[in-house]
Design a protein around this nucleic acid. Sequence first.
DNA 1: CTGCTGACTAAGCGCTTGCTCAGCATGCTG
DNA 2: CAGCATGCTGAGCAAGCGCTTAGTCAGCAG
Lengths: 208, 208
Amino acid sequence: MTSTPLADLWPTLPGADARPEAAYRLLQAAVESFAERGFHATTTRDIATAAGMSPAALYIHYQSKAALLAEISQAGHAATLTLVRDAAAGPGGPAERMRRLVEQFTAWHARARTVGRVVNYELHALPEDAYAVVAALRLDIEREVSALIEAGAAAGDFQVAEVRTAARAVTSLGIDVSRWYTGNSTETPEELGRRYGELVLRMLGAGV
Amino acid sequence: MTSTPLADLWPTLPGADARPEAAYRLLQAAVESFAERGFHATTTRDIATAAGMSPAALYIHYQSKAALLAEISQAGHAATLTLVRDAAAGPGGPAERMRRLVEQFTAWHARARTVGRVVNYELHALPEDAYAVVAALRLDIEREVSALIEAGAAAGDFQVAEVRTAARAVTSLGIDVSRWYTGNSTETPEELGRRYGELVLRMLGAGV
DNA sequence: CTGCTGACTAAGCGCTTGCTCAGCATGCTG
DNA sequence: CAGCATGCTGAGCAAGCGCTTAGTCAGCAG
């Protein structure tokens, strides 16, 4: 199985070019390993070996195993927020923007499912300070979705009883994709995105 | 925080009465701990201490830490499948049955969120033989939902482009509840269930 | 009383973990 | 050439892990 280059999943990774290639390899190995086995079941030897180095080399590039997780989680959340913001601020009415948001949010969680798993399911392993940063980003994402639903409801495009619950449902659908999507699927990330976009618009009562 | 008695979450736990009280306490402590920290971050000392015993006592009642996880996961999956089957086989048309299924599936994942987390997010830690059992149960659940959607589509009650994708979305919404629901929420599990039932029917194109 | 059983504990074994450190090769600078 | 910084390795430490073992003790049959 060839893995998608990290750069594809993560165009916004800060300092991706400046970073030494070895540090980049470690990051990619950590993503793969954390996603497959979870943070606590992954050993520093796993990560280092997968990156083709001795265990000690990890500590030249990162302060600790937890620092690796923090970097992955923060960059992954930042990328997701950017994606959501761009879609929400794009052209068209609320329904059109919501469709694009869901399409891209869903497709990202399918395409970058390894990063997505770390981002969504390894929060509890984050050090406290890194968690605080990430929690703020998650709140921003949820607020962005809520605001768009509210705009759609105000414009009469959406019919929703509870904005918070609807926003939860929309983000839930996308997040959970990173749990079940395998890549063996016949559905491409983009196809899945389009279908989920359709389902969400109906869910929100947009007559489509 | 008082925790819900296991019996409430788990009416179908086999041999719950015959089981010695100490074994029951260990099971409950394991659920709580696995849900909060994950299987690998939980130590046998954590579980035993929470159950008010020494670490060695655990091995009188269970073969291993993994055996505890296997028992929780299998019983939890069995309970979920029963719940889904009962709703799908109940009275009324496809839409009515689907509404009840989603209401109960969702409410269960909110109410029994600790068990739900172990069931849905600790699969990778299961021993191979236990995983095989559980995977079969998961397949049954998905099939049950797919069959109900298909019945609704055949009856003209639902309008769905892809049954598989729709079924994924329906189960996804419920499963993900166990990730984010905290109990601090103002929404009770039953309220959330009703709202999700409404959203799902619209998603499936049932004119409601 | 004796003899036995089953639930439990204190102590700790063998191993793995995250992480450190002295030392080595390489390549740049003067 | 020497001098030095950089990136890395081999060996290994302290701590913590799952699990075992030897033994304690209450309860009960005879």
